[in-house]
Design a protein around this nucleic acid. Sequence first.
DNA 1: TGCCATTTTAAGTTTTCCTTAGGGCCCTGT
DNA 2: ACAGGGCCCTAAGGAAAACTTAAAATGGCA
Lengths: 226, 226
Amino acid sequence: MRILLAEDDPDLSRQLKASLQDAGYVVDHAPDGEEAHFLGDTEPYDCVILDLGLPKIDGVSVLERWRRDGKATPVLILTARGAWSDKVSGFDAGADDYLTKPFHTEELLARLRALVRRAAGHAQPLLVCGGVRLDPRAARASVNGEPLRLTSLEYRLLHYMMLHQNRVISRTELVEHLYDQDFDRDSNTIEVFMGRLRKKIGNERIETVRGLGYRLKPLHNEVSEI
Amino acid sequence: MRILLAEDDPDLSRQLKASLQDAGYVVDHAPDGEEAHFLGDTEPYDCVILDLGLPKIDGVSVLERWRRDGKATPVLILTARGAWSDKVSGFDAGADDYLTKPFHTEELLARLRALVRRAAGHAQPLLVCGGVRLDPRAARASVNGEPLRLTSLEYRLLHYMMLHQNRVISRTELVEHLYDQDFDRDSNTIEVFMGRLRKKIGNERIETVRGLGYRLKPLHNEVSEI
DNA sequence: TGCCATTTTAAGTTTTCCTTAGGGCCCTGT
DNA sequence: ACAGGGCCCTAAGGAAAACTTAAAATGGCA
Protein backbone atom coordinates (compact mmCIF):
# COMPACT_ATOMS: atom_id res chain seq x y z
CA MET A 1 0.00 0.00 0.00
CA ARG A 2 1.49 3.30 -1.05
CA ILE A 3 0.25 6.59 0.33
CA LEU A 4 0.79 10.25 -0.42
CA LEU A 5 0.81 12.47 2.64
CA ALA A 6 0.27 16.13 1.75
CA GLU A 7 0.75 18.13 4.92
CA ASP A 8 2.79 21.25 5.62
CA ASP A 9 3.17 21.16 9.40
CA PRO A 10 6.62 19.58 9.91
CA ASP A 11 5.90 18.08 13.32
CA LEU A 12 2.59 16.54 12.37
CA SER A 13 4.09 15.28 9.12
CA ARG A 14 6.92 13.52 10.84
CA GLN A 15 4.70 11.96 13.44
CA LEU A 16 2.07 10.84 10.93
CA LYS A 17 4.58 9.44 8.52
CA ALA A 18 6.07 7.33 11.31
CA SER A 19 2.66 6.02 12.37
CA LEU A 20 1.71 5.19 8.82
CA GLN A 21 4.96 3.38 8.20
CA ASP A 22 4.48 1.45 11.41
CA ALA A 23 1.10 0.40 10.07
CA GLY A 24 2.82 -1.00 7.00
CA TYR A 25 2.28 1.74 4.43
CA VAL A 26 4.86 3.14 2.07
CA VAL A 27 4.65 6.90 2.50
CA ASP A 28 5.65 9.78 0.23
CA HIS A 29 5.49 13.25 1.67
CA ALA A 30 4.51 16.50 -0.07
CA PRO A 31 4.96 19.73 1.94
CA ASP A 32 2.94 21.96 -0.43
CA GLY A 33 0.15 21.87 -3.00
CA GLU A 34 2.44 22.05 -5.99
CA GLU A 35 4.46 19.06 -4.92
CA ALA A 36 1.29 17.20 -3.94
CA HIS A 37 -0.29 17.78 -7.32
CA PHE A 38 2.84 16.70 -9.16
CA LEU A 39 3.34 13.54 -7.14
CA GLY A 40 -0.32 12.55 -7.25
CA ASP A 41 -0.21 13.01 -10.99
CA THR A 42 2.80 10.85 -11.59
CA GLU A 43 2.81 8.15 -8.93
CA PRO A 44 0.19 5.44 -8.47
CA TYR A 45 -0.95 5.84 -4.87
CA ASP A 46 -3.52 3.67 -3.18
CA CYS A 47 -4.69 6.60 -1.15
CA VAL A 48 -3.95 10.27 -0.54
CA ILE A 49 -4.10 12.18 2.75
CA LEU A 50 -4.61 15.82 1.85
CA ASP A 51 -4.43 18.81 4.15
CA LEU A 52 -6.72 21.59 2.94
CA GLY A 53 -4.47 24.40 4.15
CA LEU A 54 -1.43 23.78 1.97
CA PRO A 55 0.94 26.53 0.74
CA LYS A 56 1.22 27.43 -2.98
CA ILE A 57 -1.95 25.63 -4.11
CA ASP A 58 -4.73 24.86 -1.64
CA GLY A 59 -6.03 21.35 -1.12
CA VAL A 60 -9.44 21.75 -2.72
CA SER A 61 -7.86 23.04 -5.94
CA VAL A 62 -5.41 20.18 -6.05
CA LEU A 63 -8.23 17.73 -5.58
CA GLU A 64 -10.40 19.37 -8.19
CA ARG A 65 -7.60 19.17 -10.75
CA TRP A 66 -7.01 15.50 -10.09
CA ARG A 67 -10.67 14.70 -10.45
CA ARG A 68 -10.98 16.77 -13.60
CA ASP A 69 -8.12 14.75 -15.04
CA GLY A 70 -9.98 11.57 -14.23
CA LYS A 71 -7.85 10.50 -11.29
CA ALA A 72 -9.83 8.10 -9.11
CA THR A 73 -7.49 7.54 -6.17
CA PRO A 74 -9.34 7.77 -2.86
CA VAL A 75 -8.62 11.00 -1.01
CA LEU A 76 -8.96 11.74 2.69
CA ILE A 77 -9.01 15.39 3.63
CA LEU A 78 -7.60 16.98 6.78
CA THR A 79 -8.62 20.36 8.09
CA ALA A 80 -8.65 22.58 11.14
CA ARG A 81 -11.43 22.25 13.67
CA GLY A 82 -14.74 23.96 13.18
CA ALA A 83 -14.67 24.80 9.49
CA TRP A 84 -17.51 22.42 8.80
CA SER A 85 -18.61 24.18 5.63
CA ASP A 86 -15.21 23.31 4.17
CA LYS A 87 -16.23 19.69 4.50
CA VAL A 88 -19.15 20.18 2.15
CA SER A 89 -17.03 21.81 -0.54
CA GLY A 90 -14.32 19.22 0.04
CA PHE A 91 -16.72 16.38 -0.52
CA ASP A 92 -18.23 18.01 -3.53
CA ALA A 93 -14.76 18.49 -4.97
CA GLY A 94 -14.45 14.73 -4.91
CA ALA A 95 -13.08 13.80 -1.50
CA ASP A 96 -13.91 10.39 -0.12
CA ASP A 97 -13.45 11.12 3.54
CA TYR A 98 -12.72 13.86 5.96
CA LEU A 99 -10.99 14.23 9.30
CA THR A 100 -10.81 17.23 11.60
CA LYS A 101 -7.64 18.11 13.47
CA PRO A 102 -6.82 17.16 16.05
CA PHE A 103 -7.60 13.49 15.58
CA HIS A 104 -6.56 10.16 17.02
CA THR A 105 -4.08 8.30 14.85
CA GLU A 106 -6.14 5.18 15.45
CA GLU A 107 -9.08 6.79 13.76
CA LEU A 108 -7.05 7.90 10.76
CA LEU A 109 -5.76 4.37 10.30
CA ALA A 110 -9.27 2.94 10.55
CA ARG A 111 -10.53 5.36 7.93
CA LEU A 112 -7.64 4.51 5.63
CA ARG A 113 -8.40 0.82 5.87
CA ALA A 114 -12.02 1.51 4.98
CA LEU A 115 -11.05 3.68 2.00
CA VAL A 116 -8.54 1.29 0.53
CA ARG A 117 -10.85 -1.66 1.04
CA ARG A 118 -13.68 0.04 -0.79
CA ALA A 119 -11.50 1.32 -3.61
CA ALA A 120 -10.14 -2.18 -4.21
CA GLY A 121 -13.61 -3.65 -4.33
CA HIS A 122 -14.13 -2.46 -7.85
CA ALA A 123 -12.11 -5.07 -9.62
CA GLN A 124 -14.56 -6.71 -11.95
CA PRO A 125 -14.31 -10.19 -13.28
CA LEU A 126 -13.67 -10.08 -17.01
CA LEU A 127 -13.81 -13.25 -19.05
CA VAL A 128 -11.10 -13.48 -21.68
CA CYS A 129 -10.49 -16.00 -24.42
CA GLY A 130 -7.88 -14.79 -26.86
CA GLY A 131 -9.25 -11.68 -28.51
CA VAL A 132 -12.72 -12.28 -27.14
CA ARG A 133 -13.70 -10.48 -23.99
CA LEU A 134 -16.93 -10.67 -22.05
CA ASP A 135 -17.91 -8.48 -19.13
CA PRO A 136 -20.74 -10.12 -17.21
CA ARG A 137 -21.40 -6.98 -15.20
CA ALA A 138 -22.00 -4.84 -18.25
CA ALA A 139 -23.47 -7.74 -20.23
CA ARG A 140 -21.13 -6.86 -23.04
CA ALA A 141 -18.66 -8.66 -25.24
CA SER A 142 -16.04 -7.67 -27.75
CA VAL A 143 -13.65 -9.17 -30.29
CA ASN A 144 -10.29 -7.47 -30.63
CA GLY A 145 -11.71 -4.40 -28.93
CA GLU A 146 -14.62 -4.25 -31.35
CA PRO A 147 -17.92 -4.37 -29.44
CA LEU A 148 -20.20 -7.23 -30.36
CA ARG A 149 -23.87 -6.79 -30.96
CA LEU A 150 -25.39 -9.93 -29.52
CA THR A 151 -28.96 -10.99 -28.94
CA SER A 152 -29.95 -12.36 -25.58
CA LEU A 153 -29.51 -16.01 -26.45
CA GLU A 154 -26.30 -15.39 -28.37
CA TYR A 155 -24.92 -13.63 -25.34
CA ARG A 156 -25.91 -16.34 -22.91
CA LEU A 157 -24.46 -18.96 -25.18
CA LEU A 158 -21.15 -17.11 -25.45
CA HIS A 159 -21.12 -16.50 -21.72
CA TYR A 160 -21.46 -20.16 -20.94
CA MET A 161 -18.82 -21.08 -23.50
CA MET A 162 -16.44 -18.49 -22.08
CA LEU A 163 -16.93 -19.84 -18.59
CA HIS A 164 -16.04 -23.30 -19.79
CA GLN A 165 -13.60 -22.50 -22.55
CA ASN A 166 -11.18 -25.11 -23.87
CA ARG A 167 -13.59 -27.83 -22.89
CA VAL A 168 -15.93 -29.72 -25.17
CA ILE A 169 -19.51 -28.82 -24.37
CA SER A 170 -22.36 -30.98 -25.55
CA ARG A 171 -25.57 -29.66 -26.99
CA THR A 172 -27.38 -31.31 -24.11
CA GLU A 173 -25.28 -29.45 -21.57
CA LEU A 174 -25.94 -26.16 -23.32
CA VAL A 175 -29.66 -26.78 -23.51
CA GLU A 176 -29.75 -27.68 -19.84
CA HIS A 177 -28.04 -24.47 -18.86
CA LEU A 178 -29.78 -22.09 -21.24
CA TYR A 179 -33.35 -23.28 -20.97
CA ASP A 180 -35.71 -24.47 -18.32
CA GLN A 181 -36.74 -28.08 -18.05
CA ASP A 182 -39.05 -28.57 -20.96
CA PHE A 183 -37.30 -28.01 -24.22
CA ASP A 184 -37.70 -29.93 -27.41
CA ARG A 185 -34.72 -32.26 -27.61
CA ASP A 186 -35.01 -32.54 -31.38
CA SER A 187 -34.64 -28.84 -31.94
CA ASN A 188 -31.72 -27.53 -33.92
CA THR A 189 -31.73 -24.15 -32.22
CA ILE A 190 -28.29 -24.65 -30.72
CA GLU A 191 -26.83 -25.39 -34.12
CA VAL A 192 -28.45 -22.31 -35.58
CA PHE A 193 -27.05 -20.14 -32.83
CA MET A 194 -23.61 -21.65 -33.05
CA GLY A 195 -23.68 -20.52 -36.65
CA ARG A 196 -24.69 -17.01 -35.71
CA LEU A 197 -22.09 -16.78 -32.97
CA ARG A 198 -19.40 -18.01 -35.33
CA LYS A 199 -20.38 -15.38 -37.85
CA LYS A 200 -19.88 -12.72 -35.21
CA ILE A 201 -16.76 -13.79 -33.33
CA GLY A 202 -14.96 -15.66 -36.10
CA ASN A 203 -15.47 -19.17 -37.38
CA GLU A 204 -12.30 -20.73 -36.08
CA ARG A 205 -12.89 -19.76 -32.48
CA ILE A 206 -15.52 -22.43 -32.05
CA GLU A 207 -14.37 -25.90 -32.91
CA THR A 208 -16.91 -28.62 -33.64
CA VAL A 209 -16.17 -31.99 -32.14
CA ARG A 210 -18.29 -34.29 -34.14
CA GLY A 211 -20.61 -36.40 -32.04
CA LEU A 212 -19.69 -34.65 -28.81
CA GLY A 213 -20.28 -30.93 -29.01
CA TYR A 214 -18.39 -27.66 -29.33
CA ARG A 215 -15.22 -26.14 -27.89
CA LEU A 216 -14.47 -22.44 -27.53
CA LYS A 217 -10.76 -21.65 -27.68
CA PRO A 218 -8.37 -18.84 -28.52
CA LEU A 219 -6.87 -18.72 -32.00
CA HIS A 220 -3.48 -20.35 -32.42
CA ASN A 221 -1.62 -17.07 -32.68
CA GLU A 222 -3.21 -15.55 -29.60
CA VAL A 223 -2.75 -18.37 -27.13
CA SER A 224 -1.06 -16.68 -24.20
CA GLU A 225 -2.62 -13.25 -24.14
CA ILE A 226 -4.45 -11.63 -21.22
CA MET B 1 -31.73 6.73 -4.77
CA ARG B 2 -33.06 4.56 -2.02
CA ILE B 3 -31.79 4.80 1.54
CA LEU B 4 -32.25 2.89 4.75
CA LEU B 5 -32.38 5.09 7.83
CA ALA B 6 -31.78 3.09 11.01
CA GLU B 7 -32.37 5.43 13.91
CA ASP B 8 -34.42 5.02 17.07
CA ASP B 9 -34.94 8.62 18.18
CA PRO B 10 -38.43 9.43 16.83
CA ASP B 11 -37.87 13.18 16.48
CA LEU B 12 -34.54 12.89 14.74
CA SER B 13 -35.92 10.14 12.52
CA ARG B 14 -38.84 12.21 11.39
CA GLN B 15 -36.76 15.28 10.73
CA LEU B 16 -34.03 13.35 8.89
CA LYS B 17 -36.49 11.40 6.79
CA ALA B 18 -38.11 14.64 5.68
CA SER B 19 -34.77 16.24 4.78
CA LEU B 20 -33.68 13.16 2.86
CA GLN B 21 -36.93 13.01 0.95
CA ASP B 22 -36.66 16.69 0.13
CA ALA B 23 -33.25 15.91 -1.28
CA GLY B 24 -34.85 13.36 -3.58
CA TYR B 25 -34.12 10.11 -1.78
CA VAL B 26 -36.57 7.30 -1.23
CA VAL B 27 -36.30 6.52 2.47
CA ASP B 28 -37.15 3.41 4.44
CA HIS B 29 -37.01 3.72 8.21
CA ALA B 30 -35.95 1.09 10.75
CA PRO B 31 -36.48 1.95 14.43
CA ASP B 32 -34.37 -0.92 15.81
CA GLY B 33 -31.48 -3.20 14.93
CA GLU B 34 -33.64 -6.18 14.14
CA GLU B 35 -35.70 -4.31 11.58
CA ALA B 36 -32.58 -2.67 10.18
CA HIS B 37 -30.85 -5.98 9.69
CA PHE B 38 -33.89 -7.50 8.04
CA LEU B 39 -34.50 -4.60 5.67
CA GLY B 40 -30.84 -4.23 4.73
CA ASP B 41 -30.79 -7.92 4.00
CA THR B 42 -33.79 -7.92 1.72
CA GLU B 43 -33.89 -4.55 -0.01
CA PRO B 44 -31.24 -3.16 -2.34
CA TYR B 45 -30.33 0.20 -0.83
CA ASP B 46 -27.89 2.64 -2.34
CA CYS B 47 -26.76 3.65 1.12
CA VAL B 48 -27.50 2.99 4.78
CA ILE B 49 -27.48 5.50 7.63
CA LEU B 50 -26.92 3.52 10.80
CA ASP B 51 -27.17 4.73 14.36
CA LEU B 52 -24.85 2.78 16.61
CA GLY B 53 -27.11 2.95 19.62
CA LEU B 54 -30.07 0.95 18.36
CA PRO B 55 -32.39 -1.17 20.52
CA LYS B 56 -32.54 -4.99 20.20
CA ILE B 57 -29.34 -5.36 18.17
CA ASP B 58 -26.67 -2.67 18.27
CA GLY B 59 -25.42 -1.00 15.12
CA VAL B 60 -21.95 -2.52 15.02
CA SER B 61 -23.39 -6.04 15.21
CA VAL B 62 -25.85 -5.33 12.43
CA LEU B 63 -23.05 -3.99 10.28
CA GLU B 64 -20.77 -6.92 11.05
CA ARG B 65 -23.44 -9.39 10.00
CA TRP B 66 -24.04 -7.61 6.73
CA ARG B 67 -20.36 -7.58 5.92
CA ARG B 68 -19.93 -11.19 6.91
CA ASP B 69 -22.71 -12.02 4.45
CA GLY B 70 -20.88 -10.13 1.73
CA LYS B 71 -23.12 -7.11 1.62
CA ALA B 72 -21.22 -4.17 0.10
CA THR B 73 -23.73 -1.35 0.44
CA PRO B 74 -22.05 1.81 1.72
CA VAL B 75 -22.84 2.49 5.37
CA LEU B 76 -22.61 5.78 7.22
CA ILE B 77 -22.57 5.50 10.99
CA LEU B 78 -24.07 7.93 13.46
CA THR B 79 -23.07 8.16 17.09
CA ALA B 80 -23.13 10.36 20.13
CA ARG B 81 -20.47 12.97 20.61
CA GLY B 82 -17.13 12.02 22.05
CA ALA B 83 -17.20 8.26 21.77
CA TRP B 84 -14.31 8.35 19.33
CA SER B 85 -13.17 4.83 20.06
CA ASP B 86 -16.53 3.64 18.73
CA LYS B 87 -15.50 5.08 15.41
CA VAL B 88 -12.56 2.73 15.15
CA SER B 89 -14.62 -0.38 15.84
CA GLY B 90 -17.32 0.97 13.53
CA PHE B 91 -14.86 1.35 10.69
CA ASP B 92 -13.33 -2.01 11.27
CA ALA B 93 -16.77 -3.56 11.21
CA GLY B 94 -17.00 -2.23 7.67
CA ALA B 95 -18.41 1.28 7.88
CA ASP B 96 -17.59 3.68 5.08
CA ASP B 97 -18.14 6.93 6.87
CA TYR B 98 -18.92 8.35 10.24
CA LEU B 99 -20.80 11.32 11.62
CA THR B 100 -21.03 12.55 15.20
CA LYS B 101 -24.26 13.91 16.63
CA PRO B 102 -25.20 16.65 16.51
CA PHE B 103 -24.42 17.38 12.89
CA HIS B 104 -25.52 19.72 10.13
CA THR B 105 -27.97 18.18 7.72
CA GLU B 106 -25.93 19.81 4.95
CA GLU B 107 -22.93 17.77 5.95
CA LEU B 108 -24.87 14.55 6.07
CA LEU B 109 -26.19 15.22 2.58
CA ALA B 110 -22.69 15.99 1.27
CA ARG B 111 -21.33 12.78 2.77
CA LEU B 112 -24.19 10.81 1.27
CA ARG B 113 -23.53 12.23 -2.17
CA ALA B 114 -19.88 11.27 -1.87
CA LEU B 115 -20.67 7.77 -0.62
CA VAL B 116 -23.22 6.95 -3.28
CA ARG B 117 -20.99 8.36 -5.97
CA ARG B 118 -17.93 6.47 -4.84
CA ALA B 119 -19.84 3.23 -4.34
CA ALA B 120 -20.88 3.42 -7.97
CA GLY B 121 -17.25 3.86 -8.95
CA HIS B 122 -17.14 7.56 -9.66
CA ALA B 123 -14.34 9.72 -8.35
CA GLN B 124 -15.62 13.01 -9.72
CA PRO B 125 -18.55 14.78 -8.11
CA LEU B 126 -19.88 15.77 -11.53
CA LEU B 127 -21.36 12.91 -13.48
CA VAL B 128 -20.44 12.98 -17.14
CA CYS B 129 -21.51 10.71 -19.96
CA GLY B 130 -20.48 12.14 -23.31
CA GLY B 131 -22.32 15.41 -23.74
CA VAL B 132 -24.62 14.74 -20.80
CA ARG B 133 -23.71 16.24 -17.45
CA LEU B 134 -25.45 15.90 -14.13
CA ASP B 135 -24.57 17.73 -10.95
CA PRO B 136 -26.05 15.96 -7.94
CA ARG B 137 -25.23 18.90 -5.72
CA ALA B 138 -27.37 21.34 -7.69
CA ALA B 139 -29.76 18.66 -8.96
CA ARG B 140 -29.22 19.94 -12.49
CA ALA B 141 -28.47 18.26 -15.77
CA SER B 142 -27.49 19.42 -19.22
CA VAL B 143 -26.87 18.13 -22.72
CA ASN B 144 -24.05 19.80 -24.67
CA GLY B 145 -24.18 22.71 -22.27
CA GLU B 146 -27.91 23.15 -22.81
CA PRO B 147 -29.75 22.90 -19.47
CA LEU B 148 -32.36 20.17 -19.27
CA ARG B 149 -35.82 20.70 -17.90
CA LEU B 150 -36.54 17.46 -16.08
CA THR B 151 -39.35 16.40 -13.79
CA SER B 152 -38.48 14.80 -10.49
CA LEU B 153 -38.76 11.23 -11.67
CA GLU B 154 -36.99 11.95 -14.93
CA TYR B 155 -34.11 13.44 -12.97
CA ARG B 156 -33.85 10.55 -10.54
CA LEU B 157 -33.96 8.11 -13.41
CA LEU B 158 -31.18 9.91 -15.22
CA HIS B 159 -29.15 10.20 -12.03
CA TYR B 160 -29.27 6.48 -11.43
CA MET B 161 -28.42 5.74 -15.04
CA MET B 162 -25.50 8.17 -14.93
CA LEU B 163 -24.12 6.56 -11.79
CA HIS B 164 -24.23 3.19 -13.47
CA GLN B 165 -23.53 4.18 -17.04
CA ASN B 166 -22.26 1.65 -19.56
CA ARG B 167 -23.93 -1.08 -17.59
CA VAL B 168 -27.20 -2.76 -18.43
CA ILE B 169 -29.80 -1.86 -15.87
CA SER B 170 -32.95 -3.88 -15.59
CA ARG B 171 -36.38 -2.41 -15.11
CA THR B 172 -36.55 -4.27 -11.82
CA GLU B 173 -33.37 -2.65 -10.58
CA LEU B 174 -34.66 0.77 -11.52
CA VAL B 175 -37.97 0.21 -9.80
CA GLU B 176 -36.22 -1.02 -6.67
CA HIS B 177 -34.04 2.06 -6.44
CA LEU B 178 -36.59 4.67 -7.42
CA TYR B 179 -39.58 3.49 -5.42
CA ASP B 180 -40.19 2.06 -2.00
CA GLN B 181 -41.32 -1.49 -1.41
CA ASP B 182 -44.80 -1.57 -2.83
CA PHE B 183 -44.85 -0.87 -6.51
CA ASP B 184 -46.88 -2.59 -9.17
CA ARG B 185 -44.48 -4.88 -10.98
CA ASP B 186 -46.64 -5.07 -14.09
CA SER B 187 -46.53 -1.37 -14.73
CA ASN B 188 -44.91 0.05 -17.82
CA THR B 189 -44.04 3.35 -16.17
CA ILE B 190 -40.34 2.79 -16.65
CA GLU B 191 -40.82 2.28 -20.35
CA VAL B 192 -42.84 5.46 -20.60
CA PHE B 193 -40.20 7.46 -18.77
CA MET B 194 -37.41 5.98 -20.82
CA GLY B 195 -39.25 7.36 -23.80
CA ARG B 196 -39.50 10.80 -22.23
CA LEU B 197 -35.85 10.83 -21.19
CA ARG B 198 -34.82 9.78 -24.65
CA LYS B 199 -36.81 12.59 -26.16
CA LYS B 200 -34.91 15.04 -23.98
CA ILE B 201 -31.34 13.77 -24.04
CA GLY B 202 -31.30 12.13 -27.45
CA ASN B 203 -32.59 8.76 -28.52
CA GLU B 204 -29.30 7.03 -29.15
CA ARG B 205 -27.87 7.72 -25.72
CA ILE B 206 -30.02 5.06 -24.14
CA GLU B 207 -29.63 1.68 -25.67
CA THR B 208 -32.22 -0.95 -24.92
CA VAL B 209 -30.97 -4.45 -24.45
CA ARG B 210 -33.93 -6.63 -25.15
CA GLY B 211 -34.80 -8.95 -22.31
CA LEU B 212 -32.33 -7.33 -19.92
CA GLY B 213 -32.89 -3.60 -19.61
CA TYR B 214 -31.32 -0.33 -20.64
CA ARG B 215 -27.82 1.07 -20.94
CA LEU B 216 -26.82 4.70 -20.83
CA LYS B 217 -23.71 5.43 -22.86
CA PRO B 218 -21.95 8.24 -24.69
CA LEU B 219 -22.58 8.63 -28.41
CA HIS B 220 -20.11 6.94 -30.74
CA ASN B 221 -18.38 10.16 -31.63
CA GLU B 222 -18.07 11.17 -27.97
CA VAL B 223 -16.45 7.98 -26.81
CA SER B 224 -12.92 9.15 -26.19
CA GLU B 225 -13.62 11.94 -23.73
CA ILE B 226 -12.21 11.99 -20.20
C1' DT C 1 -61.76 23.88 -3.84
C1' DG C 2 -60.13 23.81 -8.42
C1' DC C 3 -56.17 24.11 -11.45
C1' DC C 4 -51.83 22.65 -13.17
C1' DA C 5 -47.81 19.65 -13.42
C1' DT C 6 -46.58 15.17 -13.01
C1' DT C 7 -47.18 10.35 -12.82
C1' DT C 8 -49.60 6.14 -13.99
C1' DT C 9 -52.54 3.23 -16.73
C1' DA C 10 -54.06 1.29 -20.84
C1' DA C 11 -54.39 0.12 -25.61
C1' DG C 12 -52.66 -0.11 -30.10
C1' DT C 13 -48.43 -0.39 -32.99
C1' DT C 14 -43.83 -1.58 -34.12
C1' DT C 15 -39.66 -4.11 -33.63
C1' DT C 16 -36.87 -7.83 -32.43
C1' DC C 17 -35.43 -12.37 -32.52
C1' DC C 18 -36.43 -17.24 -31.22
C1' DT C 19 -37.75 -21.22 -33.39
C1' DT C 20 -38.76 -24.23 -37.04
C1' DA C 21 -38.04 -26.61 -41.28
C1' DG C 22 -35.88 -28.08 -45.47
C1' DG C 23 -32.05 -28.56 -48.52
C1' DG C 24 -27.25 -29.34 -48.94
C1' DC C 25 -22.54 -30.48 -47.36
C1' DC C 26 -19.10 -33.19 -45.06
C1' DC C 27 -17.38 -36.70 -42.39
C1' DT C 28 -17.08 -41.58 -41.31
C1' DG C 29 -17.47 -46.37 -41.44
C1' DT C 30 -18.36 -50.16 -44.25
C1' DA D 1 -16.97 -45.16 -53.21
C1' DC D 2 -21.26 -44.58 -51.16
C1' DA D 3 -24.77 -44.51 -47.82
C1' DG D 4 -26.21 -42.54 -43.68
C1' DG D 5 -26.08 -39.61 -40.05
C1' DG D 6 -24.42 -35.33 -38.10
C1' DC D 7 -23.85 -30.68 -38.93
C1' DC D 8 -24.46 -26.12 -41.36
C1' DC D 9 -27.12 -22.56 -43.66
C1' DT D 10 -31.05 -19.79 -44.94
C1' DA D 11 -35.44 -17.82 -44.76
C1' DA D 12 -39.91 -17.00 -42.84
C1' DG D 13 -43.78 -17.39 -39.27
C1' DG D 14 -45.17 -16.02 -35.10
C1' DA D 15 -44.87 -14.53 -30.40
C1' DA D 16 -42.94 -11.76 -26.91
C1' DA D 17 -40.85 -7.36 -25.71
C1' DA D 18 -40.55 -2.66 -26.27
C1' DC D 19 -42.40 1.74 -27.96
C1' DT D 20 -45.95 5.37 -28.58
C1' DT D 21 -49.69 7.93 -27.56
C1' DA D 22 -53.44 9.63 -25.15
C1' DA D 23 -56.31 9.81 -21.50
C1' DA D 24 -57.13 9.03 -16.46
C1' DA D 25 -55.45 9.53 -11.80
C1' DT D 26 -52.80 11.80 -8.45
C1' DG D 27 -51.02 15.39 -5.66
C1' DG D 28 -49.32 20.00 -4.59
C1' DC D 29 -50.41 24.68 -4.39
C1' DA D 30 -52.95 28.92 -5.00
